[in-house]
């Protein structure tokens, strides 16, 4: 049995805004009988271009019905510009979460909304311009890319849970994997370099923090390889250490020091730290 939240159960047993609006301003239809779920979303705007009324009809499981119901509650009263920003995660969050395997239900909600807004604006359904990756469920690369970006997905299974892509014959798994890799590379590039705000430290605080970091982050890892390290002195941003145990005669100790100890100390103490080895 699925572990549905009380909110999912409530929206499934008592769905809000069921039906179809006569002469709607926007209609969005996604899914199909073959896929096992489908959603038809209709909305009407008021004079201020806000969503005055919105109704849904859904064929699908409990979480599909609950996600549709939640979506209508979320967007009622929004402008289309606001509604456009609603993500599948917002829908899932509104319901107190969905089982991961069921996240595609929230994605279906977001897609129907997108389609309905495009319909209102007289745009063509976006699906046509893109390549269908999963032929079993008719999922495009665009949908997969969007799900990966918005939900920080890492595996093919996750993409299946969120978009259904890859849930049928499985032939498209290599393609999905390639898309994940490409998108994640792009995401890494775009992400602003992580800049940790570090407080200005007094000398004493700095030494204390260095000691703590060595003890917590660095020495245990060295010990695991039979090595050890002693803190000899701190001169401004220069940290003098001596290697012990196996580290003291390890040919890669130069690498150990520079790459490992310095990175850690820069991460936890200060960006300008330089590590120097003192020969005993």
């Amino acid at each position: 049995m699925w572990d549905y939240t009380e909110k999912v159960k409530d929206h499934f047993l008592n769905p809000r805004n069921v039906g179809e609006i006569e002469n709607p301003d926007g209609v969005g239809e996604v899914g199909s009988l073959a896929c096992g779920d489908a959603l038809r979303l209709t909305f009407k705007l008021d004079e201020n271009k806000r969503i005055k009324d919105v109704k849904f009809k859904t064929f699908g499981c409990a979480s599909a019905i609950a996600s549709s119901s939640a979506l209508t509650e979320i967007i009622k009263g929004m402008t289309l510009e606001e509604a456009e920003k609603v993500t599948n995660k917002d829908i899932a969050d509104y319901l107190g979460g969905l089982p991961e395997e069921k996240m595609h239900c929230s994605v279906m909600g977001r897609e129907a909304l997108e389609a309905a807004i495009a319909h209102y604006r007289g745009q063509k359904p976006v699906k046509e311009d893109f390549e269908i990756v999963c032929k079993c469920f008719g999922v495009t690369d665009r949908e997969i890319i969007k799900a990966v970006r918005e939900n920080d997905l890492k595996t093919v299974d996750q993409v299946t849970y969120y978009t259904k892509a890859g849930g049928g014959c499985g032939q498209c798994h290599p393609k999905i994997e390639a898309i994940i890799e490409k998108v994640r590379k792009e995401m890494e590039k775009e992400a602003p370099p992580r800049k940790l705000e570090k407080k200005r430290l007094t000398n004493l605080q700095r030494i204390k923090l260095i000691e703590e970091t060595l003890g917590r982050e660095i020495i245990p890892a060295l010990k695991a390889d039979g090595g050890d390290l002693d803190l000899i002195d701190v001169e401004g941003n220069k940290v003098l250490v001596a290697l012990r145990g196996k580290c003291s005669f390890c040919p890669s100790s130069g690498f150990t020091l520079k790459q490992y100890v310095e990175t850690k100390l820069r991460e936890f103490v200060s960006d300008d730290i330089e590590v120097e080895e003192v020969r005993p």
């Binding site: 499981c61 069921k102 849930g167 049928g168």
Partner: peptide, 11 residues
């Protein structure tokens, strides 16, 4: 025998 009951996506 529906898809959604099993966690798979196909009936």
């Amino acid at each position: 025998g529906s898809a959604c009951t099993s966690g798979s996506l196909e009936p």
